[in-house]
Design a protein around this nucleic acid. Structure first.
Length: 488
RNA sequence: CGGGGCGUGGCGCAGCUCGGUAGCGCGCCUGCUUUGGGAGCAGGAGGUCCCCGGUUCGAAUCCGGGCGCCCCGACCA
């Protein structure tokens, strides 16, 4: 479990820090199969909280959950041209089963558009059957060349929403609605600010007409695509005969959307808030929001203090706070402090003999705000009463701080050459660069080749610079503003 | 797929150059003492040295072949 006690500092080697912290916070571990991971209870607990929050938001926007199978006939994947081409290299295929070679190979789903729309085709006949608003929580598999825990693994957990609509306008509206749900979730729950916008042709989902994205900035200045929402047009509807009779009785193809976020978000959380002591879990997602650590010197004290700790726990539980008492007695208090800090628990409450006597507790925040004392000595009742507010204040400070960091490394109105952009990214250790663009894919390819940065998105109005850029990166006139960054 | 590194008790590593039958730190178990920032002492358990073959009286060490993993790049949520 413990190698060296301290983690490699982020400033020294960010990706090593990431790997260490994921292991040592007990989020996940490598499985025996290359590129796939075991999500441990602490990591899974965070994911469960994400699921719960997202699921509520999906339900609130009228969606229902369903489940579609893991295996998809190869011919289904092959039906939509762009879709096959996008996924072919990363497919895992089942060729044998029951001791025999299968007549038709089965693909382990890399995503479920094909099966889902083939089923929708059976269920939808009339415009009265629309819209269909469905979501599934599932695992998918994409055979990746290079993998990293949470950020890119061969198998990952996600949610994929799939909808069918009578009109293009409705589908577009749905695409945007769910992008907005994602943005809200990422900001309000993960405390991870994102820039939303449209993907370029080159970067969009294979099979989509348009892909919209949420782009977050990690602490090393690299971008993380945190969630996408696709307007699929009628591409899949055509291939799977997803048609319906409209009000005039005409048989027409439905319009589809799909949208997803994955366990990658856990990696995003780690790289957004972690520090050199470990990860920091935003209170709303923390499986444990407050850990109570009783401290004793003599055995006689132990009983009283452990009892007090459990008393505090049940008081907090009654207030809706997620609490854990750490009364293990083979570890020193210090060891427990380090462990829970590594795991990112927002608050620690210590109770020792001195506190017991004076009716106080010691409250310690995982991340100390500027000008604040590390430890607060508070009367018990006061500490309990204050916790809900402290938790929500902590939550919003995390978002503020992440936003501040992002702005610090965002370069708006950049008007230099492609080479200069590369230099800027080298010097700053990444970052977001906003420039003008003509929409020319050749320019996009050239920038990527020379700087290592990709076109993350054409930002939505809310994220655009006050002044629209006039010049395109790489010459000519700009038709839009774009965001560049090196990315995960 | 290119480049680099590594496979030795649960984890991290040393030993390999110069062959002689395996060691360190952490963790684990037992006991006692401890506990307000990673506890101390004593005792103890635990290893096909990645695999196959070769050289040799003898291989973790040398030679040949294989496999696996990690890191850095090109593709990707």
């Amino acid at each position: 479990m413990a190698q060296d006690k301290a983690l490699t500092p982020r400033s020294q080697d960010f990706s090593r820090w990431y790997n260490e912290v994921v292991h040592r916070a007990e989020l996940a571990d490598h499985s025996p199969v290359r590129g796939s991971m075991v999500i441990r209870p602490w990591g899974y607990g965070i994911w469960e909280n994400m699921q719960r929050a997202l699921d509520d938001m999906f339900k609130a926007t009228g969606h229902e959950n369903a489940y579609f199978p893991l295996l998809i006939p190869m011919s289904f994947i092959e039906r939509e041209k762009a879709h096959v081409e996008g996924f072919k290299p990363e497919l895992a295929v089942v060729t044998h089963a029951g001791g025999k070679e299968l007549e038709e190979p089965l693909v382990i789903r890399p995503t479920s558009e094909t099966v889902i729309y083939s089923m929708f085709a059976k269920w939808v006949q009339s415009y009265r059957d629309l819209p269909v608003l469905m979501n599934q929580w599932a695992n998918v598999m994409r055979w990746e060349m290079r993998t990293r825990l949470f950020l890119r693994t061969s198998e990952f957990l996600w949610q994929e929403g799939h909808t069918a609509h009578a009109t293009e306008a409705e589908a577009r509206e749905e695409t945007r609605r769910m992008l907005e749900v994602y943005r809200t979730f990422m900001e309000d729950w993960i405390a991870m600010p994102v820039v939303t916008g449209l993907k370029s042709e080159r970067e969009k989902f294979a099979g989509a007409v348009e892909t919209w994205t949420c782009e977050a900035m990690m602490q090393d200045g690299k971008a993380l695509q945190a969630g996408t929402s696709h307007h699929l047009g009628q591409n899949f509807a055509r291939q799977f005969d997803l048609t319906f009779q409209d009000e005039q009785g005409t048989e027409v193809h439905a319009w589809n959307t799909s949208w997803g976020v994955s366990t990658r978000l856990v990696g995003g959380l780690v790289m957004t808030h972690g520090d050199d002591k470990g990860i920091v879990v935003p209170p709303r997602l923390a499986p444990v929001q407050v850990v109570v650590v009783p401290i004793w010197r003599k055995d006689e004290q132990r009983t009283a203090l452990v009892e007090k700790a459990h008393q505090l726990r049940s008081r907090l539980q009654d207030m809706g706070v997620r609490v854990k008492v750490d009364d293990r007695d083979h570890l020193s208090p210090g060891a427990k402090f380090w462990e829970w800090e590594r795991k990112g628990v927002p608050f620690r409450m210590e109770v020792g003999p001195r506190d017991l006597e004076s009716g106080q507790v010691v409250l310690v925040r995982r991340v100390v705000a500027e000008g604040e004392d590390r430890k607060a000595f508070l009367p018990e009742a006061e500490a309990l009463a204050a916790l809900p507010d402290l938790l929500s204040a902590f939550q919003s400070e995390l978002l503020q701080e992440a936003r501040r960091r992002r702005e610090e490394r965002s370069h708006r109105g950049f008007d230099g050459s492609i080479e200069e952009m590369g230099e800027l990214l080298d010097a700053q250790g990444g970052g977001f660069v906003y420039t003008g663009w003509s929409g020319d894919p050749e320019v996009e390819a050239r920038v990527q080749e020379k700087t290592g940065a990709t076109l993350r998105c054409i930002p939505d109005p809310a994220f655009r610079s006050p002044e629209a850029p006039k010049r395109c990166m790489g010459g000519g006139e700009a038709t839009c503003e774009v965001l560049w960054a090196r990315a995960y």
